[in-house]
């Protein structure tokens, strides 16, 4: 292979991985944008989605992607429930409280999975897991393409919801100014519950989409996903849904290019280093619009 084909291959891998990262990050950024809560349990909801697909596949024998039919509504309701039972009670407390509460939820989810399903890595067996499509010498993984399509669909759906419906207007109003939204008659408590439900649902969708590629493990993986989601949202700009795509792609490309042209052991570190640099020099994110410094 010539150099530029390798480069194209790397870029394609990076962009596709980036699509996956964007899918993981978009729920986190939605929740942060509206509720100003950094959801430490986000990655654990992703893992929950993975286990939903694993169990669906193992117990019923259907294609893991079909578990979305159940996982999407259940994820939405779980998120709403968590918001109602926990976050709604501390909405006026210092922002740290919400961070700590979601950290607690994260520990509970991870360890509850460990208790019920066990600690050994689980995945699904599907025929298309290793299928690749070749375009001009560049190979792309089928599952990653599906994940990319899911990202585009999820973000397009979210965009339509936010900009084309009455609930979306209410969500955007709440994000902009909670008190102002309440003054014009928006039930911001209900909006918060819906938004957290949506965020959880997006995390679960990401988990189901990813399961043919990865092995699910209960406790560590949640933290890894949460960190990735943070990196994605901070790279793109916290609170901006469209920027999550850009942030995800930047992260994917930085990791893949760093791993292939620099030392590959430090693959994860390149993303984290980019994350720290962005936090330090452009805390509003590469594509964020708010110019206020944190």
């Amino acid at each position: 292979m010539t150099d530029w084909v390798i480069l194209l291959q790397n870029l394609a891998n990076g962009v596709l991985m980036g699509g996956v990262y964007a899918l993981v990050g978009v729920g986190l950024t939605l929740v942060f944008g509206v509720m100003r809560t950094i959801n430490f349990a986000h990655g654990d909801f992703v893992v929950l989605g993975m286990y939903a697909a694993v169990l669906f596949n193992a117990l019923l024998g259907f294609d893991p992607y079909l578990s979305l039919v159940i996982a999407v509504p259940v994820g939405f309701l779980t998120g709403m429930l968590v918001e109602r039972l926990v976050l709604a009670r501390i909405v006026d407390a210092p922002p740290e409280s919400a961070l700590l509460a979601t950290l607690g939820i994260s520990l509970i989810i991870g360890n509850a999975i460990l208790l019920t399903v066990g600690g050994e890595p689980r995945s699904v067996q599907v025929a298309y897991a290793s299928t690749t499509i070749s375009i001009g010498g560049v190979h792309v993984s089928m599952v990653l393409l599906v994940a990319g399509a899911a990202t585009v669909a999820a973000i397009a759906g979210l965009y339509a919801l936010l900009h084309r419906t009455e609930i979306g207007r209410a969500i955007r109003a709440t994000a902009e100014n909670r008190l102002g939204a309440e003054l014009v008659g928006i039930d911001t408590r209900a909006i918060h519950a819906i938004v957290f439900g949506l965020g959880t649902m997006l995390a679960v969708v990401a988990g189901v989409t990813l399961i043919p590629l990865l092995f699910a493990t209960p406790t560590n993986m949640g933290a890894v996903f949460t960190l990735k989601a943070f990196v994605v949202t901070v790279l793109g700009g916290l609170g901006s849904v469209g920027a999550a795509i850009a942030g995800g792609i930047v992260l994917g490309v930085v990791e893949v290019l760093g791993a292939s042209y620099l030392a590959s052991e430090y693959r994860e570190a390149y993303g984290l280093a980019a994350f720290l640099l962005i936090l330090l020099f452009r805390p509003e994110g590469l594509f964020g619009r708010t110019v206020k410094r944190v």
Binding site: V86, L100, A101, L103, G104, I105, S106, L107, I108, N111, A112, L115
Partner: peptide, 8 residues
Amino acid sequence: LIYGVLIL
């Protein structure tokens, strides 16, 4: 798990 419950 106990840490999670206690912190909540």
